[in-house]
Amino acid sequence: MTDEKTLLYSGYQVIPSNFSLEAYKYVFKNPTTIIDAYKVTFAFSVIGTALSVLLMAMLAYPLTKKELKGRNFVSFLLFFTMLFSGGLVPSYILITRYLHLGDTIWVYILPSMISVWYTFMMRTFFNDLPKEIFESALVDGAGEFRIFFRMVIPLSKPVIAAVALFIFLGKWNDWFTSLLYINDPKLVSLQYLLQKIMNDIKLLSENSGNMSIQKDTSSIPTESVRMAMAIVVAGPALLVFPFFQKYFVKGLTIGSVKG
């Protein structure tokens, strides 16, 4: 939030000495791009988070059943994907050529649906839930789905809120998906707009040894504009935090459960 001259002449300072909103005006000079990106990012972050959390919980809960055959195998199957991946090319072929998800909002949501890391985290939490309540519910004739939705989920609000927050932030900061899969400028994510600037700078410096192209630095926004972009992009994500925080702080204890 410092004006550009101050930045140039005295460098970064922890406390800005010269306050200016010029950069923000510049960022919002052409607001449709940013507004589109906001809409898209918000949509896929919310939908993606909700679906991800639900599906991951559905995966994690059965894994806590020690009697379930193949439980360790599934855990290993999941873990394996954490470490090994076929790289970008096969995924790209699958997603664009066979599933036709390129240039749709679903490409932000579907491929990254299951995060193994958070699934395991949920599993650990579900493990700690008192099994006896479930057993008494079973005696009452409740099915596993009923137990899952009626008891497991409500009891695990803190972890679900925590995981949801992580996923939400992960989605909010997604720029690489836009880079690879999105052609339609109306569908790019907010973070991509910021990352593009950084990538442009990197591109210019990489090619600095190559005199055979004309380098045009004038399209690179000034540093204060970049900072303003960073704030505009990250800001709203900061605002969602209190919303999730409510759930951690409430802290649901066993006592509040009533079957």
Binding site: L55, M56, M58, L59, Y61, P62, L63, V74, L77, L78, T81, F84, S85, G86, G87, V89, P90, S91, I93, L94, L110, P111, S112, M113, I114, V116, T119, E144, F145, F148
Partner: peptide
């Protein structure tokens, strides 16, 4: 049954492309 849908995602998006190794 509960695991089926999430596992489908894992298989489609993680295991199918894995041959790319």
């Amino acid at each position: 049954g509960m695991m089926a849908i999430p596992l489908l995602f894992v298989i489609v998006f993680s295991y199918i492309p894995m041959f790319g190794i």
